[in-house]
């Protein structure tokens, strides 16, 4: 079968799969940002209980595989009365996993804000909460954007695993098409190219643009 004909026949399914991948990606990114911010800040808390809880969460999610976490959330959690449908389990697992990595980026960026900034904020008598919100976080945000650019690509790649719990994303469609056609080069090759274009020509340029405009906004550029 010529490649053109292949695309004509299966293009629709690739497209449908890609759409699901995009939705999974966006939702997983939102979850991971929320997780990263809350656990990153909790990790820096002076309250020992809060800090330990965050540390345990981060170490567990970074110390085991995303695939294990995904299967655990989808197959084991229902035994404890928490049943998520496969679509939700998918982006929640990816988001919680990547959020643990993001939490470390948040912490690292906050620590990278010069000590003088904390002191200056204290010298104008700000409360700890004001200091964090008004002075430290805006600067930490700009510091952590470049590493988040890489993490966001990892999130996108991570969503491919949701195919293994039968979410009909791009990965899933590619596998189905492969099973029925045995045209593996065409099938998996097409899927690879779609992921590549998505990462390299959509996500990365967007993140770069975001970085630059944020840097300009705080007068760093």
């Amino acid at each position: 079968m010529p490649y053109f004909e292949f695309l004509e026949t299966y293009g629709g399914r690739f497209l449908e799969g890609s759409l699901i991948t995009v939705v999974q990606f966006v939702l997983a990114t939102i979850v991971s940002v929320v997780v990263a911010l809350s656990f990153g800040l909790m990790r820096m808390s002076s309250n020992l209980a809060v800090k330990s809880f965050a540390t345990v969460y981060i170490e567990i999610f970074r110390g085991t595989s995303l695939l294990v976490q995904l299967f655990w959330i989808f197959f084991v959690l229902p035994l404890f009365g928490i049943t998520l449908d496969k679509f939700t389990a998918g982006f929640i697992a990816v988001g919680m996993n990547m959020g643990a990595y993001g939490a470390e980026l948040v912490r690292g960026a906050i620590l990278a804000v010069p000590k003088g900034q904390w002191e200056a904020a204290k010298a104008i008598n700000m409360t700890p909460a004001q200091r964090m919100r008004r002075i430290i976080l805006p600067q930490a945000f700009v510091i952590m954007l470049p590493p988040w650019g890489n993490l966001v690509i990892e999130i996108m790649k991570g969503t491919a695993l949701v195919a293994l719990i039968s979410v009909t994303d791009l990965m899933f469609e590619a596998r189905q098409i492969n099973i029925s056609t045995f045209l593996s080069v065409q099938t998996f090759g097409t899927a690879l190219i779609i992921y590549y274009v998505f990462a390299r020509f959509l996500i990365t340029p967007f993140m770069r643009f975001f970085e630059r405009s944020m840097a300009r906004k705080i007068g760093r550029a």
Partner: peptide, 22 residues
């Protein structure tokens, strides 16, 4: 290098495994 880094490992695993037999 960019290509390998920006596509899912899972897909690459399938690719390598299934492309040979073709």
């Amino acid at each position: 290098v960019e290509f390998i880094r920006s596509t899912p490992l899972l897909l690459q695993v399938f690719f390598v495994f299934y492309v040979g037999p073709q």
